[in-house]
Design a protein around this nucleic acid. Structure first.
Lengths: 224, 224
DNA sequence: ATAATTGATATTTGATCAAAAGTCAAAACT
DNA sequence: AGTTTTGACTTTTGATCAAATATCAATTAT
């Protein structure tokens, strides 16, 4: 049985209202709960969460620092609405950085890791089949981040988390394009390639996953 | 004479106390003004900048979100002190991401870009020769970020800025190892390779710049 | 009728303050 | 002497409030 070494304990940071608000807002964003265009005030969030405006302020400051939220009209804030250039930039950076994380993750593919991915893929397929949008988005997140976490680089993981905070609000539109099915093919390909230790193929599938989502997104959203 | 198009105007965001405090603290960190181990309270910063604690709070929240500052003892904050693992992680991620930015920057190397780099290199060499630590650190920043800016990816630029906020507090120790001279050789090599459109060589020099600094840093700082 | 200006309103920003939490050191106990 | 406990003090956290600022609508002028 595994003995826990003293270094492996989690730092157990104090639970404060602002971190709780921050967590809630993060989840909301990652699950597509904040639609682009929608706007809120600090007071409205404070009211919804039944806390005073102060902890909301600090949480929102943090999210604005991470560019997950932005000032919409000086009077209220919302998810940044991306133009085509920003979308493309985000896509290009994601392709490079998430490929890197995948490559690092594949330096050591334990059976436990494979099994974990398989389990998460099954959940994601089930969510797609039953058309659960929220369930799919969450499962998709879990699948990808299981990989990125396995890269064993806290800093890279952090950077990717940041990118996902920016793209997540837009992922729910993919449900209307029937894109989730296409996406799951790529997820299947990634897992298969991981099993075969084929980094090239896994990377190609991941890039296809990201790029095809981007193409659909741009086709759906951009009018000008 | 160039006519300014309406789209090219900067959004001109409102200047508020907290953003000013944030800017000041960023500069301080990037120029090595905050030594690892040193610690402050919000009140002490507020006092030093002659503002009330409130704007400092928000600026500090932002910097903690970006992991440029961290809580040291629940009672005061400081620059995160990195162990060997964190240093290595940071180095590895920097190597990958800054190489990527360099590659993108070299997709179009205008004469103006080259001239700009040359000018910045000259300043950096002068700073090294006259042993101006602060001057060198600033010039080094300007040289690197001239490249990263030319990559023309706001998102990548933002990620790199974040990484530099984390590593900058440690760069001043390189002055004592006479490392700046070695570093400038690499900068010279990078510029030469950029001029020749030799991406491979430029990347190799950049990686050498980052890696050798890391080696020196680890040798100097890590005792355990 | 259209455009600009002005004024009212909503919201953020910054200040002050009370309460909660954490730290450090002195004192008490083993 | 070393360890634990206790208590004073420091600092953060969250609340409330005033001032600054931006937005929107109504009014005025062209």
């Amino acid at each position: 049985m595994g003995m826990k070494s003293i270094e492996s304990i989690t730092p157990l940071k104090r639970k404060t209202l602002q971190t709780e608000v921050y967590r809630q807002l993060c989840s909301l964003i990652l699950e597509g709960g904040l639609a682009p265009g929608e706007s809120f005030t600090i007071a409205s969030i404070a009211n919804a969460l039944q806390v005073s405006p102060m902890p909301v302020r600090e949480a929102v400051t943090r999210l604005m620092a991470e560019k997950a939220l932005t000032i919409v009209s000086g009077r209220s804030m919302g998810v940044p609405d991306l133009n085509k250039t920003s979308f493309e930039d985000l896509k290009n950076v994601r392709v490079e950085i998430e490929s890197l994380a995948l490559k690092w993750a594949m330096r050591n593919t334990s059976p436990k890791f494979i099994a974990d991915l398989e389990e998460k893929l099954i959940i994601m397929i089930a969510a797609e089949k039953s058309s659960e949008v929220k369930g799919f988005i969450r499962a998709n997140y879990n699948f990808h981040f299981a990989i990125y976490n396995h890269a064993n680089s806290p800093i890279l993981y952090n950077l990717i988390s940041n990118l996902w905070l920016r793209i997540s609000p837009y992922l729910h539109v993919l449900s209307e394009s029937g894109h989730y099915k296409i996406s799951n093919e790529q997820h299947h390909n990634i897992l298969a390639a991981v099993k075969m230790h084929d980094v090239e193929k896994a990377t190609a599938s991941l890039i296809e996953d990201i790029t095809s989502a981007y193409d659909t997104l741009v086709a759906t959203l951009i009018t000008d």
